[in-house]
Design a protein around this nucleic acid. Sequence first.
DNA 1: CGTTTGTCTGACCATCCGGTCAGACAATCA
DNA 2: TGATTGTCTGACCGGATGGTCAGACAAACG
Lengths: 205, 205
Amino acid sequence: MTKPAPRPKTRIQRRNTGAILEAALEVFSAQGFRGATLDQIAEVAGLSKPNLLYYFASKEAIHLEVLTGLMDTWLAPLRALDAAGDPMEEILGYVRRKLEMSRDLPRESRLFANEILQGAPRMQPALAGDLKALVDEKAAVIRGWAEAGRIAPVDPHHLVFSIWALTQHYADFDVQVRAVLGEGHDPFAEAEPYLETLFRKLLAV
Amino acid sequence: MTKPAPRPKTRIQRRNTGAILEAALEVFSAQGFRGATLDQIAEVAGLSKPNLLYYFASKEAIHLEVLTGLMDTWLAPLRALDAAGDPMEEILGYVRRKLEMSRDLPRESRLFANEILQGAPRMQPALAGDLKALVDEKAAVIRGWAEAGRIAPVDPHHLVFSIWALTQHYADFDVQVRAVLGEGHDPFAEAEPYLETLFRKLLAV
DNA sequence: CGTTTGTCTGACCATCCGGTCAGACAATCA
DNA sequence: TGATTGTCTGACCGGATGGTCAGACAAACG
């Protein structure tokens, strides 16, 4: 057979591509794209390097697949923001879900952070495309709430940025947060009420 | 003469070490430590690779020198927080200075972000040492203000984290912010009044 | 059972990259 | 001016790393 391995078809393919993507997430998120090596990923996945390259065309291809495969998960919390719900509870719920993702999926957060820090060389289109569309849509919802006087007037885009910044900070800069707090702290447990208060005050009419 | 080049002594040494550190900041901040190469730094600095290694012992040594050399600049805004000043104006001033640093010194911001994202392998001691000490000191000041009823009660450490997160986000995730906002926006100009409002509401008694 | 299709690997290659070194070249100064 | 000290480079080295390939091996299926 020729080189391009078809997408998950057989049982073995599903298992191995899954193991590779999981291992790649582990390694890429910890070392960045350039810092990660195929040998590391192969070892974590429990496969040989040539076997990785039997399933994926290149290191680039693995990275891209991890990135795109995680986009849906990553944007789900924002998608769940419901125009029909109560404004304050919807936004606070979004904050809470994002903070939980930072706590439970820090590798995903760091993976995206690494990519964007380097100028998003492999994600530029997705940012200006799907992401912008989604944010614009939800920003319109938030603007509607503000204009109806149901929350305080705020710039909806920068509100979203501030939610991203404040929640992802606890995943991306985890070592710094823990170093500054010292022993005996649970950053996420402390951040939750802090952020709830912050956004309640910001949005109260 | 032996290998270790003495610290800036002659005119030429000062000029070249300066050019190297400037070039290293440029390259390390854009590519991360692992992604940067000595050839790139040498080219940006206008020197040959062996000449870099005449002035610095290794790639590691250059990186460490850039990092430590920038710490003072980086922490200056927080150091300037004055216990004797007006609480609200002091904190808003700190926010403004940090945002200006994100705008004017984005390379420095990304350099630190890269380092911390990778687990701060070369900065752990500085974080748990000088940085923690400085933050603890200023946190005590803020706690004092809160207990005196001059600002609303807040967790001072997480207040500092939120200032870092919100301001550095505009430097570190610049491409994402610009992609989502689209053409015709000045992220920093928009962020300034947004952040001022946010912190005014958070801290108002 | 044999054939076809799919899975896997050891050995290998080319390139990149951090780092070395002998010695050329330039500045300084007695 | 000659000697000393400081600056710089071309050529080279060894290890790491992404990627290839011929063929061994296993599963599926008629």
